[in-house]
């Protein structure tokens, strides 16, 4: 246990934890998007997929992995950001970016936006399924704790305000994922120049897939293309 504690205490160790949990969360966003594409196949497909995900072992297993990852990812980042904020007490009058990008420099802003997105999304479409819980939703439908996934999603996103929220949140997610997916490779020790160039391409492809898919679903709902 001692070695795990000293690992966590070091900045490199915390970075590795943030990278591994980031990888798990990236995997989650990808599968979540792919699963949701079933909205294009209609209510039956979508609802039976929803019921499948509500098998207790899948539901609670998934929640445990995503929840733990999220807690460690946010906690680790907050620890690092606090430490690093103290590393330069007096800033520069002039500072000109060299190789850093918009994506890399905005991680600490896109991170909290994604966290808000995550929480609001749970309130929108998850918490309502538990008896006695409030849902941030116009008309949340469920039977025996299993939400009516298709109707809940289309009802929520047919509201242009909610749709815009999701589009903006997904753009922030994309900015976060692009640097995150590339950065985690370096943090986890990928050091070849060619491998890193490949990692950048894969990061971009994954980002486009996840964000593109999510925005396509949102647009389909708000434009009433799926009913």
């Amino acid at each position: 246990m001692n070695f795990l504690l000293s690992f966590w205490r070091s900045t490199v160790g915390t970075k590795v934890v943030v990278a591994v949990t980031g990888l798990l969360l990236l995997g989650f966003t990808l599968f979540h998007m792919i699963g949701n594409l079933q909205v294009f196949s209609g209510p039956e497909e979508m609802d039976s997929y929803g019921a499948f995900l509500h098998k207790p072992e899948i539901l609670w297993g998934g929640r445990a992995v995503v929840g733990t990852s999220m807690v460690l990812h946010v906690w680790g980042t907050m620890k690092l950001v606090r430490q690093t904020a103290a590393a330069r007490p007096e800033g520069y009058r002039k500072w000109t970016a060299q190789a850093s990008t918009f994506y890399s420099r905005t991680m600490k802003f896109t991170g909290p936006i994604v966290l808000i997105y995550f929480v609001v999304h749970l309130l929108n479409l998850t918490t309502g399924a538990e008896p006695g819980h409030i849902a941030l939703h116009p008309n949340y439908l469920q039977t025996n704790g299993v939400p009516k996934a298709f109707e809940n999603l289309t009802a929520l996103l047919s509201n242009p305000l909610w749709a815009s929220f999701y589009i903006v949140a997904n753009l922030a997610l994309g900015v976060h994922l692009f640097h995150g997916a590339y950065s985690m490779c370096k943090t986890l020790g990928l050091s070849g120049q060619r491998q890193l160039r490949l990692a950048r391409v894969i990061a971009a492809a994954l980002t486009f897939t996840v964000v593109g898919g999510n925005i396509a679903i949102t647009l389909a709902c708000v434009l009433q293309l799926v009913k």
């Binding site: 990008t101 890399s104 490779c185």
Partner: peptide
């Protein structure tokens, strides 16, 4: 010192052109 977030600004100004891939090796 702060932690590395893989900006690569360091590599760009290094007068000896030291590569950030060394940081990945350090992490590993």
């Amino acid at each position: 010192f702060g932690h590395c977030t893989n900006h690569s600004d360091c590599e760009a100004v290094c007068p000896k052109g030291i590569s950030v891939t060394n940081i990945a090796m350090m992490n590993r």
